[in-house]
Structures are given as C-alpha cells and as structure tokens.
Write a protein that binds this DNA or RNA. Structure first.
Lengths: 124, 124
DNA sequence: CGGTATCCGTGGCGATACTG
DNA sequence: CAGTATCGCCACGGATACCG
C-alpha cells in the first residue's frame, strides 16, 4: 500500500518516512469508522457479535465483521468460538489491545479541547 | 456529518457518543493523507507552498492546498501572505498546532511497536 | 446465531489544465 | 509563485440477500 510507495520513492528522506509510517500505522489500526466504538465496548468486557450490533446502532453486518477481523489480525482483540448450537462467539480485548488506552485518552482530551475551540470561535 | 447522525440517534448512549466524537474529532484533524507530513515539516520551521511540494513528493497541488486549508481552519497552522511580486506565502505551525506533539509522539511509539509485532509474527 | 457474497453509491484523492 | 477548476478513479462503506 501507500507506505511502500513512500519507501520506494528515493526523493523521500529516511526520517520523513519513519515519522509518517509509524503514525500512519497507528491511525490505520484504530482509524476505521467503527473500530473505536468496538474497542470502547470491549473494554467493558466480552461481547458477542449481535450484542455489538445492538450496542453500535447503524453498523452493518459487513462492516462489523470486517472491522472485527482487522482488529483481530492486528492482535488488538481476540475471537473465541464456542462449539455449541446455536453457535456462540465472544470478542474480547487482548492485553495488547489495552496498550491503546493511553492513545485514546490523549486523543479524547485533545478532541474535547478542539471542539470547544471550534464552538468558541463560532465560525461554524 | 457522521457525528451528528450519532447524536440524533436515540439508540446511542451519551457516554458512547462522547467517547466517539472526541476521538474522531482528533483523528479527522490529523488523519488526512498528507497532514502529518505537512505538520512534520512545519515543525522544523516555516515553509512556502512550493517548498512543501518539494518536501512531500507525490502530493498534488490540489491536495496540498486543501489539506493546508483544513489545517489552517482548525487553527493548527498559520498562513502568512507577503504582498510582493512574485507573491510569497509562508506556512507555520501555531502554538495550538504544537499541542499535537504529544499525540504524535505516543502514536509514533505505538506504531513502531506495532510494526515490530507484525514482522515478528511474520504472518504477513 | 454469526456470519459471507454481491452490488452499488459516495467522497477522498489524483491528474491535468488554467489563473492572478 | 501560489494557487483554483474540472474530470474521473477507486476504495471505503452501506444495503440486501444468502449460508453453516
């Protein structure tokens, strides 16, 4: 993807790429439209698939599945399948996923402040 | 936009919205494809338009203008026009823009670690 | 219950041409 | 030099139907 294009371009400075790649990596890991909400709910405990659908109104089955899969592949959440009938699947945060916590906290704080700025200036 | 849709949906819990909105706000402020690179270069000092184009190979005029404008509207950077011929415009970070620094740092750190994890596990 | 598969629309982004 | 205008692609995400 894009990061590789950057790498391949000799016009780029090593340091620039370095900065960009790593921050982008993080954004991609959590930047999906529903990922934050998923992680948010999983922080409070394990959740089943349809439970998450209910907790996150508006998410489609496709997107929920997709983003859960991405989060799982990134090692941020864990998918446990119970071989029962009817089938049961539970999603839970991994210890690694919990390392995102400080990032969320700092972004949350900044976002609060930023929105306050916007409304204060009242330009929009 | 999307945030308003969330707000309007009575199915959503206030706390969920709160978390989502603020973190999303931050992601939108810095998540644009070129924004980080722009901020990265402006951290080292003021830059002119074409200077940034040279420093960021691959960016189109349109996108550079657009993302500069967004960053300016968010108060993260400042645009100084010098009424000369030929025209000169310099972009610089604002003090407010510099408040992003800790976010970048923490995301950078996490990204480094994350990429290491990925290559270590060698699944891709 | 917990998903895939498929089709489709939107907008982010790129390429090119033009301008004060 | 520092942009705007316009067109067009395509990936992201939504809607719907189907499956083990």
């Amino acid at each position: 993807m894009f990061l590789d294009i950057l790498r391949a371009d000799p016009a780029y400075d090593e340091e620039d790429i370095d900065c960009y790649i790593h921050v982008s990596t993080t954004i991609q890991a959590i930047g999906g439209r529903w990922k934050m909400l998923i992680l948010w709910h999983l922080e409070e405990g394990e959740r089943r698939y349809n439970e998450l659908r209910r907790l996150i109104p508006g998410v489609s089955q496709k997107m929920l599945s997709q983003q859960l899969k991405e989060l799982e592949q990134d090692g941020l959440i864990e998918r446990k399948v119970f071989p029962e009938t009817p089938p049961r699947v539970e999603y839970a945060m991994t210890p690694y996923g919990k390392t995102l916590r400080p990032i969320f906290d700092i972004m949350y704080e900044w976002g609060v402040n930023h929105r306050q700025r916007q409304t204060t200036e009242g330009t929009e």
